[in-house]
């Protein structure tokens, strides 16, 4: 009886200490969405269960190792206890009940994350190797940054151009795969103004690690200002070849791999690219003129620059006009 009492007390003490420790450790990122609330609530209850169950097993185990240890020179056996059917039934039925409760809590929490606001703002998301593109159809905006107004539900309609990707902002908690051949949906209500990142969470190829784009949660006023500014830029850009070229590079996710400022990314930087010479992987050099650029877009494998991942860039079947616009844009990057 004494052993049981001591162990019982130790289990409760250890469970409480473990829970306090886990809670204090700040295991989750900051909570930035309405959907995160029920997820974090459930996670907290899971920590309670984990703390208790961990103690329930480890405390008697360590206690036994200390108290029921064979002493040096001892040769006898332990107590001949084969089992205890009521105990077996108890530790089958009670966990069964607890498991069902947690499953129900899980279903409830899932439901909370799927609450639908019929007036949700719809934004289109394009995922491709290795960048995200965001389209605001009613404004004609295509952006590599996702801007969202705080406290409004947003419905992202997501499509993939090539392989499976996955949309995840850790501070929002919710994650959803983007699958080629279908449109997957992601509902989120950001609640905390700030700068976050969407990080692709399904292995999509060699530069999967770098498939991250900014997600900015603005106040309503800042959001509206951003929309107006972007819409104006888009309208202006549509008037010139360079502007149209720039829109194309955002829309097709080019800037996910090609930097504009000289920094080294998955693909060669576009800064000062036009008209320069480059060493190719096979040892020859090439002048990066209109013909070369056109070929690189339509058939990237043909002439690959030394020092960059071969076969990573997919072919983009763009029209001659689109390519000409892009070249016009590239010429401005000096």
């Amino acid at each position: 009886m004494g052993h049981f009492l001591i162990v019982g007390i130790l289990v409760i003490v250890m469970a409480v200490l473990t829970y306090i420790g886990l809670d204090a450790a700040g295991l989750m990122p900051v909570q930035a969405s309405a959907q995160a609330v029920s997820i974090d609530w459930l996670w907290n209850w899971q920590l309670v269960a984990i703390s208790f169950l961990f103690s329930l097993i480890v405390v008697p185990l360590v206690y036994s190792l200390a108290v029921f240890r064979r002493k040096k020179g001892e040769t006898g056996d332990g107590a001949h206890i084969e089992g205890n059917t009521p105990l077996e039934i108890a530790w089958t039925v009670i966990p069964l009940f607890i498991v069902l409760v947690f499953a129900y809590m899980g279903a409830y929490s899932l439901g909370e994350t799927r609450r639908v606001d019929p007036n949700a703002l719809v934004i289109k998301v394009q995922a491709r190797q290795f960048a995200w593109t965001f389209e605001y159809p009613e404004y004609g905006i295509v952006s590599s940054e996702l801007h969202l107004p705080v406290n409004k539900q947003v419905l992202l309609k997501m499509e993939s151009a090539d392989v499976i990707h996955s949309f995840w902002v850790p501070e929002f908690r919710v994650k959803q795969d983007v699958v080629p051949g279908r449109v997957t949906e992601y509902r989120i209500t950001p609640t905390l103004i700030g700068s976050y990142k969407v990080r692709c969470a399904e292995l999509c190829g060699s530069a999967h690690a770098y498939m991250e784009n900014p997600v900015i949660v603005n106040s309503q006023a800042d959001y509206d200002a951003w929309i107006s500014a972007q819409a104006a830029i888009a309208a202006e850009a549509a008037k010139t070849p360079e502007g149209q070229g720039k829109s194309l590079t955002v829309k097709n996710g080019c800037i996910g791999c090609h930097s504009l400022d000289g920094s080294k990314m998955t693909g060669p930087t576009w800064f000062n690219l036009y008209g320069s010479e480059a060493a190719l992987a096979d040892g020859s050099t090439v002048l990066r003129d209109d013909a070369y650029i056109a070929e690189s877009i339509l058939n990237p494998k043909a002439k690959e620059v030394k020092g960059f991942a071969p076969t990573v860039m997919p072919a983009y079947p763009l029209t001659d006009e689109e390519i000409a616009n892009i070249i016009a844009y590239l010429k401005t990057l000096k």
Binding site: I39, L42, Q46, I50, G106, S109, L110, E112, Q176, A201
Partner: peptide, 15 residues
Amino acid sequence: PPNATVSTDLHLHDT
């Protein structure tokens, strides 16, 4: 169990 539960798994999956 946190992985088994759908809502928490939405955060944990692929991490």
